[in-house]
Structures are given as structure tokens and as C-alpha cells.
């Protein structure tokens, strides 16, 4: 127990936590855009699986990781567009259609996997890149500045999305469409256009989130390999109060506690594994209860928009 609280364990937690957080970040930041504009996309899980599969398939057949990543992004956009078509144009119930999309992604990725790759094989994915100078700092260099390009990209996405949402015309439009679509419409902003944009962006990010698993973090594809991550990503958006910084905090909290409980087990701390495994979920719920911030909650979330209703 005593050697649990050492510098190397702390660094180990940080390294694992950052890696675990990466797919959540991609997916949850993308979902933040969709939800901020008023569309609840529960299809993230299915899009992640399709992204993971398609990225892996293309990378393993062409040998180009970048081509794989691009494919995952495109597949993500296409699935996002499908979600937008159903939820924006056809105004279907968003929760139900999202779950449908998730099941669709699960089924299709499994089917394609069986028809093409057949059994689990590994590839050599994106390798860690040590950042010059920063990477040479003792401990911190290993923990923070020796990751694959996709890990860096996930974290860079946070400040970038904060800027876009808060300081650009498109960000303003996205927030307006989610808060008061009638108002946005009356100012000549196309609610449908903005929602298509955010949902397909969210899809792209979910696709990349899946590819970050199959091309950078685990380097293989297995059926249902996301194992509910997409749903956790959706929950993290609520947790983060629709603020990318909050989403970052939630992802890190969840991932760090998950990494921490693995260390508890490795160090043989005498608690049942079931209790240790509950920790990230329990802590996340507790934090959610205390830090609830509904101020940015999009008023029009989960509500289809039709002109003339007020």
C-alpha cells in the first residue's frame, strides 16, 4: 500500500489516464458541438465502431495510417449526416434514432469485420512522438510529451473548440440555434444547416475517436471494441456542462480514476476488484451531483425545429 503513493505510480497514472481519455475527448468534444446546437446524438457509439473498423481496414490493406484516419473521418461524417437527416430533416425522436444508429454501427462493423478481416490481427499504429525539449524534462516529459499524434490532437481540440464556440461567428450561431432556434431563424440563420454541420462534425470526431483506438492506442480491431465508450462520451458532455473545458475535466477525471483503480489492483491493495471498478463511475456521478452547471444547457436540446411554432 505504502508504495502506491510514489512519483512513478503518479506518472504511470498520468500516462494511462491521458491515453484512456483520448477517445472520450474526441467523441465528447464532437458531441458537445452537436448538443450545443440542440441535437442529442446517441449514435456516437456506433459511429466510433464504424470509424474504428473502417480506419483499421483501410490502414491494414493500404498500409497508410493517414489514409485509414481519413477514411474513419469520412465514414464518421457520413454517419453524422445520416443522423442529421433522420433527426433534423425528418424530425424523428433524437434519442431513439441515435440508439438506432448505434446498433446499426455495431451490427455493420461486426458484419464487415467478419466478411473482410475475419479474425483479430494487429497492425503497427501511430507511434509515440517525443516532443523536443519538453519531452526531455524528467518524469513530465515521459508522462505528457511522449504520446502519439492523435493523443496530442485530442487535447489540442479543447482550446480550439473553446475558441470556435465562443469567439467566432459560427460558434455564436451554433449556440443560438441550440438556445433559441426561433430567434436564430428570425435573423436569417438556417437552423437546419447549422445542425447538419455540427452533427456531421460530431460524427467526424466520433469516427476519429474510434480510429484513435484501432490505429493509435490498441492497434487492432475487435467487434464491439468500444464497449459503451460512446455513451460515456455523451454523458461527459452533460458532465462538462456543454463546455469543452468541463468535458476535458470529466474525461480526465474518469480516466485518471480508472487508471488509479488499476494501480490499486496491481499494488495488491485489499479491496474487491468490483469495488475498484466502480470507482470511476461513482466518482463521476458524485462530481456531477456537486458541480452541476446547467447554465449552458441548450434549451432546444432534443427538440426538432419547425418554423412558425412559438
Amino acid at each position: 500500500m505504502s508504495d502506491l503513493f510514489t512519483l512513478s505510480v503518479l506518472m504511470g497514472i498520468i500516462v494511462s489516464g491521458i491515453r484512456l481519455a483520448t477517445p472520450y475527448l474526441f467523441a465528447a468534444i464532437g458531441e458537445t458541438f452537436a448538443q450545443t446546437s440542440g441535437v442529442l446524438n446517441l449514435g456516437v457509439e456506433g459511429i466510433m465502431l464504424m470509424g474504428a473498423f473502417s480506419g483499421f481496414y483501410i490502414a491494414s490493406t493500404t498500409g497508410s495510417l493517414w489514409l485509414g484516419l481519413l477514411t474513419a473521418a469520412v465514414v464518421g461524417i457520413l454517419m453524422g449526416l445520416l443522423m442529421a437527416l433522420v433527426s433534423v430533416t425528418l424530425q424523428a425522436e433524437q434519442g431513439i434514432s441515435g440508439i438506432g444508429l448505434s446498433l446499426f454501427g455495431l451490427g455493420l462493423s461486426s458484419l464487415l469485420f467478419e466478411k473482410t478481416i475475419v479474425s483479430v490481427v494487429a497492425i503497427s499504429g501511430f507511434q509515440p512522438i517525443r516532443i523536443p525539449i519538453l519531452g526531455n524534462i524528467p518524469y513530465i516529459g515521459d508522462a505528457l510529451f511522449d504520446h502519439s499524434i492523435l493523443v496530442y490532437a485530442a487535447f489540442l481540440l479543447v482550446p480550439l473548440s473553446i475558441y470556435v464556440l465562443n469567439h467566432t461567428p459560427i460558434g455564436l450561431k451554433i449556440r443560438a440555434v441550440g438556445q433559441n432556434p426561433q430567434a436564430a431563424d428570425s435573423l436569417g440563420i438556417s437552423v437546419a444547416k447549422i445542425r447538419y454541420l455540427t452533427v456531421s462534425f460530431g460524427g467526424m470526431m466520433a469516427g476519429i475517436a474510434g480510429a484513435s483506438l484501432s490505429l493509435a492506442l490498441i492497434d487492432l480491431f475487435q467487434e464491439n471494441m468500444t464497449n459503451g465508450m460512446g455513451y460515456i462520451a455523451v454523458a461527459l458532455v452533460y458532465f462538462g456542462g456543454w463546455n469543452p473545458l468541463g468535458v476535458l475535466g470529466g474525461s480526465l477525471l474518469f480516466s485518471f480514476v480508472n487508471a488509479f483503480q488499476l494501480w490499486l489492483q496491481v499494488k495488491g491493495v485489499q479491496i474487491p476488484s468490483n469495488i475498484a471498478l466502480m470507482m470511476p463511475y461513482v466518482l463521476t456521478i458524485v462530481a456531477l451531483a456537486f458541480a452541476a452547471n446547467r447554465a449552458r444547457q441548450p434549451t432546444a436540446l432534443d427538440k426538432p425545429f419547425e418554423r412558425g411554432e412559438s
Binding site: L172, R175, A176, A184, S186, A295
Partner: peptide
């Protein structure tokens, strides 16, 4: 047009509401 139900986004500032939809 000033609608009966105001077309304002409560979580944005006055300036942001005015700027909404303008070409920057």
C-alpha cells in the same frame, strides 16, 4: 420584426445577440 415572443438567446450577451447572423 419584433416578435411577440422575443427572439433572443438568454445565455448570450446583448452584443452577441445583436451580432448573431451578421457577416463578420
Amino acid at each position: 420584426m419584433i416578435h411577440q415572443h422575443f427572439m433572443l438567446v438568454p445565455s448570450l450577451t446583448v452584443t452577441e445577440n445583436v451580432a448573431l447572423g451578421l457577416k463578420s
